[in-house]
Design a protein around this nucleic acid. Structure first.
Lengths: 242, 242
DNA sequence: CTTGTTCAACTTGTATACAAGTATTATGGC
DNA sequence: GCCATAATACTTGTATACAAGTTGAACAAG
């Protein structure tokens, strides 16, 4: 029971974060993982007591999570929203929108620098696999896609990404932790897909890009479905993780 | 001097708003209109004194404006960012992305209800023109596009819209106030373009939609660059999920 | 004049206090 | 038992207080 109070969000990603950010990251993970059930009503005082901080950082965190559509702020309390399959699909829609837009810009640019950066990140992902570090792997995976988004220097597309990123990060994190517990074969395929992605960007091959983009989504999607259907199995896995 | 202190944001839109929201709306207008110069550094205490509220609502407002890319929160003070031509262009990129996505969904749905709602809003826009009320007109114009976005019931596309909306609202508001002072002919064309838009949605005519969408952009401000070469690729992805 | 140090006036982040409003529960009348 | 009303215990929104850190200027030493 005490174990289930352990933080889901990696502490080492919170080095210089304020209390509000810490609470937001942890709450986000708990909501997406299902540890906090959808439909629950959270109050500021209750959360402040639980996290041993004042209401100020809690308010900040709730505002952030509401903007990510994980909560709905009401008169009395914040209602936890469900991350349905439809929601996951919607996230995929947005990723497709963003990354396709980015690709169309990229084909008009010199992509050698981006490809280099992506290759570097991919190397790091391989190391993370070698040392079985799901968190590091997730971090690099997110960084991979952020590199792509940032490459075209478009502040509003970047804004959309910044809104999507926290949810995506949490999803990937939970998904990858599960995989490191179970099947290892998946990672070869993930790495190959990323290599395809880099190749598509280097060669400016639109079809290859769409193909790898879809496959990359399937990599996350498949496991996410299990994620909320077998909540207990997952939580156990986390507790053993320590 | 006294005149320049008048609020730019319409009071009647702030009926039930909190102090934080009021400050955010007013600050947004001042930044976008240029009354607050880009590069200025705003501090919480200074703003609290200026708006005669405490730092709490000010902090809330600054967070919001930072998420809209109008400010950059730094160690000491919030730096006001410039709304360059490039930025305006980017906003239209996103509008084009969103509304094209929405249209691709709409053509698979029954659009009679949406068209009806849009027609109603358009009627109100005409009334606003008749009575020369720039604020009402802007309100209905924004509502028109929000109706379109909401019609497909896609929470993440709606999130993107919600992020874009405040800036867009301010831009339209300022633009329309200027036009009501000057040229009147524009409004006939604006109304016609919106009618085209409704027609495109009713008849599910993709070409007409793209045409009216582009013209609508030209109406408000600036030009739209040729970015929709990616339409084909993007459409593929949308159809994939059905 | 230049350089290094100290100090004072700022800044943000967090905690706490207060006011106004809402849901719930208790209570009184029937 | 049942309904209306009042008291109570919550809620949020805002104001204020405090802590920690940063900036920049005054100022002394060389």
């Amino acid at each position: 029971m005490a174990e289930s109070n352990k933080n889901l969000y990696p502490d080492k990603w919170l080095n210089k974060a304020s209390a509000g950010e810490r609470v937001a990251c942890e709450l986000r993970m708990r909501i997406i993982s299902g540890r906090i059930e959808s439909g629950s009503i959270l109050s500021e005082n209750q959360l402040a007591a639980e996290f041993s901080v004042s209401r100020s950082p809690i308010r900040e965190a709730l505002k952030v999570l509401a903007s990510e559509n994980l909560l709905r702020l009401e008169r009395m309390g914040a209602v936890v929203l469900e991350l349905t399959e439809k929601e996951i699909q919607e996230i995929y829609d947005v990723r497709l929108l963003i990354e396709t837009f980015v690709f169309e810009r990229l084909v008009k640019m010199d992509t050698t620098e981006v490809a280099k950066e992506l290759s570097k990140t991919l190397e790091m992902m391989k190391i993370a696999i070698k040392y079985q570090d799901a968190d590091d792997f997730s971090f690099q995976d997110v960084a991979f896609h952020e590199t792509i988004v940032r490459s075209i220097d478009h502040s509003h597309i970047l804004m959309i990404w910044n809104n999507l990123k926290p949810t995506l990060e949490s999803l990937i994190l939970l998904s990858m932790r599960m995989r490191f517990e179970e099947t290892y074969d998946d990672f070869d395929r993930i790495i190959r897909n990323h290599e395809l992605y880099i190749e598509a960007i280097s060669k400016k091959d639109r079809d290859l890009m769409v193909q790898s983009l879809h496959q990359n989504f399937d990599d996350v999607q498949g496991r996410v479905e299990d994620l909320w259907t077998s909540q207990q199995t997952f939580t156990k896995g986390v507790e053993h993780d320590d």
